[in-house]
Amino acid sequence: LDMDCLPYGWEEAYTADGIKYFINHVTQTTSWIHPVMSVLNLSRSE
């Protein structure tokens, strides 16, 4: 699993305190969880 590779439309950013988060420019949303990890967690719960 390549954690450096973000899906299309996603960008890694940091808060003023240096905390990493992710921006989805396609849906105009943000997430604290890496988008690949959130997809993996969803697929495990099914």
Rank of each mutant, 00 (worst) to 15 (best):
W32I: 06
W10V: 06
P35A: 00
V39Q: 14
G18N: 02
M3K: 15
E46Y: 08
L1F: 11
T15R: 05
H34M: 04
F22W: 11
V36Y: 11
I19L: 14
A16P: 10
N41D: 14
Y14S: 09
F22L: 02
A16S: 13
D17V: 06
G9Y: 03
L42H: 15
G9R: 02
T29E: 09
S45Q: 10
C5W: 08
T29N: 04
E12D: 01
M3E: 14
A13V: 05
W32D: 07
E46H: 06
T29D: 04
P7A: 06
Y21L: 04
E12I: 10
S38N: 12
L1R: 02
M3D: 12
S38C: 07
L42R: 14
Y8F: 11
L42Q: 12
P35M: 03
Y14R: 09
C5G: 12
L40F: 10
T29L: 00
L42F: 10
W32F: 07
S45N: 12
A16F: 04
P7S: 02
E12F: 03
D17Q: 07
I19N: 15
K20P: 12
G18L: 01
D2V: 07
C5M: 11
E12T: 08
P7G: 05
L6Y: 05
Q28K: 13
Y21C: 01
E12A: 04
S31N: 00
N24M: 00
E12R: 03
T30L: 08
I33Q: 13
K20W: 05
S31M: 00
Y21E: 00
C5N: 11
D4W: 08
S43Y: 02
V39T: 13
E46V: 10
L40Y: 07
Q28V: 03
V39N: 14
T30Q: 06
R44I: 00
L40A: 12
S38G: 14
M37L: 12
H25R: 14
Y21P: 04
I19E: 15
N41C: 11
T29I: 14
T29C: 14
E11P: 04
L42K: 14
N24F: 02
V39G: 15
E12V: 14
E11L: 04
M3P: 13
N24A: 10
H25G: 05
T27W: 11
D2K: 10
D4Y: 02
L1K: 15
I33D: 15
S45I: 13
Y14G: 04
A13C: 06
